[in-house]
Simulated scan of single mutants.
Amino acid sequence: MNFLPTDDQLAFRDTAVRFAREKLAGTYLQRARIHTLDRQLVREMGALGLIGPDLPEEFGGMGLDYTTAGLMTEAIAYGDFNISYIQLLASLMGGMVAQHAGRDISMEWIPRVIAGEKIIGLGLTEPRGGSDAAGLQLKAEKTANGWRLNGEKTSMSAADQADAAVIFARTEDSTTGSNGVSAFFVDLTEKGISRTHFDDIGTKPVGRGSVFFDDVVIPSECLMATEGRAFGTIMAGFDFSRALIGLECIAPAQASVDETWAYIQEREAFGAPLAQYQGVTFPLAEAETQLTMMRQLCYYTLNLRDSGNSHTAEAAMCKWYVPKTTCEIIHQCLILHGHYGYTTDLPFHQRYNDVLGLQIGDGTAQIQKLVIAREKVGRVALQYDKQAKGGAA
Rank of each mutant, 00 (worst) to 15 (best):
Asn2Trp: 05
Phe3Cys: 10
Phe3Ser: 10
Thr6Pro: 05
Phe12Pro: 00
Phe12Lys: 10
Asp14Pro: 09
Leu24Asp: 01
Leu37Trp: 00
Leu37Met: 15
Asp38Glu: 04
Ala47His: 08
Asp54Gly: 15
Leu55Ala: 06
Thr67Glu: 12
Thr68Leu: 14
Thr73Asp: 03
Asn82Ala: 07
Ser84Glu: 05
Gly95Met: 11
Gln99Asn: 13
Glu108Met: 13
Ile114Pro: 15
Ile120Phe: 09
Leu124His: 02
Thr125Asp: 12
Thr125Ser: 13
Ala134Arg: 05
Leu136Ala: 12
Lys139Met: 14
Ala140His: 00
Ala144Thr: 07
Glu152Met: 12
Glu152Arg: 13
Lys153Phe: 12
Ser157Cys: 07
Ser157Gln: 01
Gln161Lys: 03
Ala162Ser: 15
Ala162Arg: 04
Asp163Pro: 08
Thr171His: 07
Glu172Tyr: 07
His197Gln: 14
Phe198Lys: 09
Ile201Asp: 07
Lys204Val: 01
Ser210Asp: 15
Ile218Thr: 04
Cys222Lys: 11
Arg229Ala: 12
Ala230Val: 04
Phe240Ile: 10
Ser241Asn: 03
Ala243Asn: 02
Ile245Ala: 01
Cys249Lys: 03
Thr260Ser: 10
Ala262Pro: 04
Ala262Val: 00
Gln265Asp: 11
Glu268Met: 09
Pro273Leu: 08
Ala275Trp: 00
Thr281Tyr: 04
Phe282Glu: 14
Pro283Asp: 07
Pro283Thr: 01
Glu288Pro: 00
Thr289Ser: 12
Gln290Tyr: 02
Gln290Gly: 03
Leu302Met: 05
Asp306His: 01
Asp306Gly: 02
Asn309Met: 14
Cys318Trp: 02
Tyr321Ser: 14
Val322Trp: 06
Lys324Met: 03
Thr326Ile: 09
Thr326Glu: 09
Ile329Pro: 06
His331Glu: 13
His331Thr: 14
Gln332Tyr: 07
Leu336Cys: 11
Thr343Lys: 08
Asp345Ile: 00
Pro347Trp: 08
Val355Gln: 06
Leu356Gly: 07
Leu358Val: 09
Ala365Asn: 12
Tyr384Pro: 04
Lys389Thr: 13
